[in-house]
Design a protein around this nucleic acid. Sequence first.
DNA 1: GACAATATAGTACGACCGTTCGTATTAGTC
DNA 2: GACTAATACGAACGGTCGTACTATATTGTC
Lengths: 201, 201
Amino acid sequence: MSKGEETRQAILDEAFSMASCVGVGGLSIGALAERTHMSKSGLFAHFGSKEELQLAVLRESQQRFADIVLRPAFRQPRGLTRLRAIVLNWLDWTREACLPGGCVIMAAAAEFDDQPGPLREEVKNGLLAMRRTLAETIAKAIETGELRPDTDIDQFAFELEGIYQVTQQSRRLLDDPDADRRALIAFDRLVRDNAVLKEKE
Amino acid sequence: MSKGEETRQAILDEAFSMASCVGVGGLSIGALAERTHMSKSGLFAHFGSKEELQLAVLRESQQRFADIVLRPAFRQPRGLTRLRAIVLNWLDWTREACLPGGCVIMAAAAEFDDQPGPLREEVKNGLLAMRRTLAETIAKAIETGELRPDTDIDQFAFELEGIYQVTQQSRRLLDDPDADRRALIAFDRLVRDNAVLKEKE
DNA sequence: GACAATATAGTACGACCGTTCGTATTAGTC
DNA sequence: GACTAATACGAACGGTCGTACTATATTGTC
């Protein structure tokens, strides 16, 4: 790893945690330079434009998300076990990734949803990929016979996303201590409604 | 209505639709002055500070929300009918209120959730009020015998919020044409799981 | 219509923004 | 150790930001 890549990564590390607090749009090169003990121009040279920096932060976020949330969950056996692992890691990932200001990607989604450009596309693709990953995992839980074959996979993923979003909001804005518990209740209900019928107990 | 109040309202109208696109934090006095054909200082005098302007926009949003979403729904009979009316109006309100850039309040919620100050408090109180309204409406649906007495009211409201949030995101960022349909499916499932058991059909 | 109160405009300010440029320093290679 | 390319710095630019102050125009009241 050359010196350049090294500092570039160091900048991204700082930018990542900074973006958690002020949003990807709220990043400023001056402030970032200060926190990395660099000159504005020296830092700037690594990216060429602010937008390129923002894109790099988004990509960094997605990679960390994959490392922290998805990869460990995919070591679990396919089916509901794995799906549940994703949900648990997901709910926990802002803590795990040291994101003092919440999930960078979700914040960016709200920020750029009506501002056409590369940033919007990047966020959109990231979220679509997440939906796809969820869908595949759900499909495997059908294969294992845990969920009913007529389960609406995309609907399932859709509702899962909703649970995640409201949990974040409840935790961060409303300071609701029950948010995580509620998220799991909602998840269990979602699973139960799509599970194959067991013997009546 | 004095001249002052009149122009103040005109400014707020413009600021409201502007905030829909760039967010409450993205409002700028210069740009707003241009769009209202006023001088920066003339406009500024109506609010005294940018934060005061932002607060006014948030209050304006809440009032419009009440007018467009809640008030009409409360003309429906209490119970599930009214609850469903709220949901329908809610899903529709960004169109109804001419919000080209989506729900101002939700965007502000994501924007200010980690930035202490009056703006955060205003958004927080607004969302808490919404949860309370939902809870009351759900409670009435229990009274009418449509929902089970052991329905977890706050859980119900929690999940409803989640449905709304993911719908907004799916519509606006992912350009998903099925978002509204999915929202209603999720709502119906939520109702069904809490409904009093009917004769087996 | 005079007068006070209110409302608007004009100008200027200091701070920060992203970006450019020329130059100094440092790292990697022979 | 010399030479080159990569890397970092400092200063400056044009712009926009929110805000303060002063002066002019407009409004509402007697």
